[in-house]
Design a protein around this nucleic acid. Structure first.
Lengths: 298, 298
DNA sequence: CTGCTTCGATACTATTTGGGTATGGCCATG
DNA sequence: CATGGCCATACCCAAATAGTATCGAAGCAG
């Protein structure tokens, strides 16, 4: 069978109409080129050129092959660059999990950066709890995840993206409601309110952190309704079913009927982190981590 | 850049999952295969395989390349066979001219044989006078032509396809009209009828042949209407505008209102011939000539 | 019609590249 | 810890490719 080199030679001769001229263009001397063309003809069992006194011209079969050869060479080139771009993580699918709070903090900026830095990567976003993300990462069905206030199991790497305090989320008609910027609300003032929380299994660390804050303020929070997603919790608060402690960035949700207030004691900031499995890291995941690192630094 | 051989090797290794196994399948020993794979990786600047203890597996870039490589190899194969089939005249366009009479004699059978013998050839049929065909053949805009009773100019080759006598074509109501199979009609009986003919410039040889037949029968045919196509001439006869001498195969047209009779003297048979330019003969034209030759012989 | 020019083909040599054999080294498994 | 399986490396030989010199055929001008 033939060879891409022979095809390149053939195209050069066909386009130049001269063997010698084409040899020059290929930085080659004339005789080997002549020989390669004849060899291609022998391999195919087809004569591709008419030889006459002042050059060569394509036979019908040659004209047909010229079209195919140009396509083939272009396709080969494209295949090479596709493989290279895939290896660099510039091409493909990126499966990114995220906790619901990330939608209101880091996720929009990160997605924008991905779109700018890796425009040919298809981003698949999945809203998942931290546990679901850890499981999917271990199973290889997720490339990276964004979790808040959760402890990734041993084999996972992590990158802190941001840290934010908890704030109180109150119904707007609540006696303690006040515009932002007023003095922090002493937590003890909420001792008699029902607290709206995630189910503990979904986010044990965050759940415990909130209960501990209550203890620190001298009371045991009374549990009210439960909600799996942050939007649900804020919605329940706006319906007057209780109060909640939520990440400060949830104030960006601007749901009518709720009010956010800083609390005292403030407690430790909640970390939002990017997590991934370093073993078998896909190139595109590595690029995501780079971008995220740059986003945190910049 | 890489090479189709390397691509074939790559595909074999990818499909086998083992270098050694693939080497066997390629009738090759393992070390050169190993080396070619590494060289392909070096050429692309991309690692295509993960090596582990019991074989190799594709990297993400490798998986991407595998798809493209399989396509490329198939396309290369296809390009080769396309060129070969084109060289053999099994593929392409065949521009065939024909005189209108051929429609009622040899053309249908020839077209059927072409469809069977060269199914991938696109036949372009053009109804043209002999002179138009000779001109188009000289100009290279026609591959072959079918003419009746015409003398091709010097550079053209010819193949006789059939020869047929002239018969009289009379209006059905004409006193001389009679069913086929009766005695031949003495031409002299038509001495007072207007003769419907082609314009002489369109088919001088046939025109002269008809006039000569009249002379032979002892009169000079009186010219009536003219028609360029055979169908037209027969139509004018059926309208009662005169009589005509037409190739015997025109009886196959079975136009109502006309009647065909053998004539006396019969004169020489009219040759219908395939003509073409032997210089720069296209492969597909050569195949047509072969088929036509077989059709005449068989 | 003859010499000149142009261009592809051929002969021969040098170098590169590809393939074979022997062997080393790594990783998983029992 | 030893063993087996498998890929990588080292080295050598054969084949293919490129370069130089030359030939031969076909148009063109004088």
């Amino acid at each position: 069978m033939f060879d891409l080199r022979q095809l390149r030679y053939f195209v050069a001769v066909a386009e130049a109409g001269h063997v010698g001229r084409a040899a020059e263009r290929l930085h080659l001397s004339q005789p080997p080129l002549s020989r390669q063309i004849r060899q291609l003809e022998a391999n195919l069992g087809v004569s591709l050129f008419h030889r006459h006194a002042r050059g060569v011209s394509l036979t019908e079969a040659g004209e047909r092959l010229l079209l195919d050869a140009q396509d083939l060479l272009a396709a080969a080139e494209a295949a090479a660059t596709t493989a290279q771009r895939t290896a660099r993580g510039e091409l493909g699918r990126l499966r990114l999990g995220f906790a619901s709070t990330a939608l209101y903090s880091i996720l929009p900026a990160l997605v924008r950066r991905l779109g700018e830095g890796l425009p040919a990567v298809t981003l698949e976003l999945r809203e998942l709890t931290a546990e679901q993300q850890f499981h999917a990462l271990a199973g290889g069905t997720l490339d990276a995840g964004i979790v808040i206030c959760a402890d990734p199991p041993a084999p996972l790497d992590r990158l802190p993206l941001l840290a934010e305090p908890l704030v109180a989320c109150l119904p707007a008609q609540h006696p303690l409601a006040a515009p932002a910027g007023t003095t922090p609300l002493p937590l003890a003032a909420l001792r008699d309110e029902p607290f709206i929380l995630f189910p503990r299994v979904q986010a044990p660390a965050l759940h415990d952190r909130i209960l501990a804050l209550g203890q620190q303020a001298g009371f045991t929070p009374r549990l009210g309704q439960q909600g799996v997603q942050m939007q649900t919790i804020v919605g329940l608060v706006s319906a007057g079913l209780g109060v909640a402690l939520v990440p400060a960035s949830m104030a960006g949700l601007r749901r009518p009927g709720v009010c956010y207030r800083a609390i005292e004691p403030a407690g430790l900031d909640l970390p939002t982190e990017l997590v991934w499995q370093p073993a078998g890291l896909r190139p595109v995941t590595a690029r995501l981590i780079e971008l995220a690192r740059a986003a945190v630094a910049g």
